[in-house]
């Protein structure tokens, strides 16, 4: 039963990633693209965690944690850059 649920979740998240890619392409402003990439990072985190369940190993949590931190920092840095024209003042 878990295998079927995982198949459904993988296809749903793949579809969500395609939608995020479409949002990145469409825009229209730069902040829409930043938001789309942030959502894409969150989808990838969920994908990595579900892959860890399907492989039955807890190795991938560190990768998911690094993705979470990196996505947060890059989104804040990009928003700060749009806001002020500089990241560290």
């Amino acid at each position: 039963m878990i295998a079927h649920a995982l198949t459904f979740a993988f296809s749903a998240i793949s579809l969500a990633l395609l939608m995020n890619l479409w949002s990145v392409v469409r825009g229209p402003s730069i902040l829409d693209r930043v938001l789309a990439i942030d959502t894409m990072v969150i989808n990838v985190i969920a994908l990595i965690i579900l892959y860890g369940i399907s492989e039955q190993t807890p190795v991938y949590f560190e990768a998911a944690l690094i993705f979470a931190m990196f996505g947060f920092v890059s989104t804040v840095a990009y928003a700060k850059f749009v806001l002020r024209g500089d990241i560290i003042e």
């Binding site: 649920a5 979740a9 749903a12 969500a16 939608m19 995020n20 949002s23």
Partner: peptide
Amino acid sequence: LIIIGAVFLLVGSWGMI
């Protein structure tokens, strides 16, 4: 839980479009 999470992820990305 897996299906609820996947559906919410899909809805979030769909809402952004």
